[in-house]
Structures are given as C-alpha cells and as structure tokens.
Write a protein that binds this DNA or RNA. Structure first.
Lengths: 132, 132
DNA sequence: GTGGATGCAAACTCTTTGCACCTTG
DNA sequence: CAAGGTGCAAAGAGTTTGCATCCAC
C-alpha cells in the first residue's frame, strides 16, 4: 500500500478534510465524489494499510463498528495524541474531544493494573442541540 | 420470553453466578453444563428478552461485540446502576468498576450537550497482574 | 514491463429468522 | 391443549479474500 493511486488520495483527503471520524461507508460516500465507482473492499484495504503506517487512526466506540480519523494536527504529535470522542445521539456523528479527565488508575479494584482508558461522551452535538 | 424453561434458567443462573460480563459464546459454554446441546440462537433470543425486561444488562465495550451481565446487587438498584468496566488485555475478561470519575460535561466543546458517558479501563486484572 | 492496487464476486463471521417439533402452564 | 420456546438450517449484515485486470512507477 505505497502507490499513490487515485483511490488512495481520495480516501486520504477525505479523512484529512473531515474534522471527525468516519465509517468505511462514510469514507466511500465522500471519496466517491473524487473517484466514482470506488469500491468498499478498496476502502477497507486502504484504511487497513493506512492504520498500519499510522497515517490514520482507528476509533472504536462502544456498540459501534470502527471509524477512522486523521491524526489530530492541532497538537502535532506524529502518532496522534491521547484524546476522546463525542457521539451525537441525533446525527450519529463522532467528534474529537481534546480533553481528558486524567488518570483513572484509582478507580480499579486492588491488584488491577490500569494501563489505558477510553472515554466516550454521548448527547447532542452543537448543531443538533441548537436545532432542538 | 416468560416461561421458565431449562434453557432460560441455565442462562440466568450463569449470568447471575458470574461476577463479570459474558459474551453469548461464553454464556453458551457455561450454561451448556446445565443444558447440554443448548443452541446459540436460543442464547441470543433469551438475552434479547432478558435485556428488554431489564433482568440483564448489555455491556458495549469499544471494539468488542456486546457482552451481558446481571445487574449489580451491591447497590441494589432495580434497573442496575451507573458503573463502568475493566477489560483485561491478557485474559480478555471484563470486570465491573463500581466507581466513576464523575460528570464530564465540561470536556465537550461549547454548545455540545453531554447526556451520558462511557468509561472503559484496560490493563491487567488482579490475577493476570500477579502472574506476570 | 512488472508488481502492487482495483473491482467484482465469493467466502467468512456473527447474529437473526423460518419452521417443524417439543414443552410449559 | 394451546401458546410459547427450542434446535436446526438458512438468511442477513458487515468485512475480508481470491483472482483477473489495470495502472503507477
């Protein structure tokens, strides 16, 4: 997965252009504007390669299939930086949260070694909240 | 889904007997001890009904298929109470965390309305940490 | 020109559904 | 005895793979 095909470029620019996390189907829909006929298997193969080379990161939210996002450039860490996500219950979109409640090691029972945490917020995003 | 069949009893006692969240396959494996030949479709149908009547709650962790657990009786709230989960990276088991970092409404951007949050801790459970 | 990438179709996994038979109340 | 539950097999949904063709280098 190193060649600059039209498909790869379309997928990459879709991910880097969007400020949020996209599902494979969303990626296909957006990238199809640049490459009509783009196939879903190609999207899956490209994102798999892109995740491996850390050009894109995978976002797993509870109860949802994986989404993908461009590493945040606001903090310019090469391999992306620690952040969380907000899932809008209305439009189903996923937005990055550049804040963190901090270590949660003390929440676990004695003897448990906490090495990582995931936080997902749910509710209404700004535009869906304004609409209500 | 109201009749007390052997299958239903086996599934319920498996969930109530285990102190953690189980996947449908795990439920089937455990409950098969009481009902040999228990089928996976029956497990899926029973848990669906049990979740609807709130006798069991569904646990969605990031990147994982759903698990199911008996509502925690330590706090004795009928419909279960707010809690989180710990996922062991070694044995893949999921344990309840009866603590919560508190509201995270301030983490979201302006205009976002936060109504709920999920927290998942990852690392090593007590027995896997002791073994290392 | 050659090897990697693409698109199609088929395979796979997980979950759900149709249906004949069995069991609970 | 009737309504509901079970097991089997097959159908769906989402993702991955095989393969012939195409295209970037």
């Amino acid at each position: 997965m190193k060649r600059n095909t039209r498909q790869r470029e379309a997928i990459l620019s879709t991910l880097y252009g969007s400020g949020r996390s996209l599902s494979p189907v969303e990626i296909r829909a957006e990238a199809s504007v640049y490459v009509p006929g783009l196939s879903l298997p190609t999207v899956y193969r490209q994102i798999k390669g892109l995740v491996e080379e850390q050009a894109v990161s995978q976002v797993d939210l509870p109860g949802q299939s994986p989404r993908y996002e461009a590493p945040c450039d606001a903090h310019a860490t090469v391999a992306g930086h620690h952040h969380h996500h907000f899932h809008c219950d209305v439009c189903e979109r996923v937005y990055p949260i550049h804040a963190c409640p901090g270590s949660m090691a003390t929440l676990a029972p004695k003897g448990f070694r906490v090495e990582r945490h995931d936080v997902t917020l749910h509710g209404r995003c700004a535009s869906c909240a304004a609409r209500a």
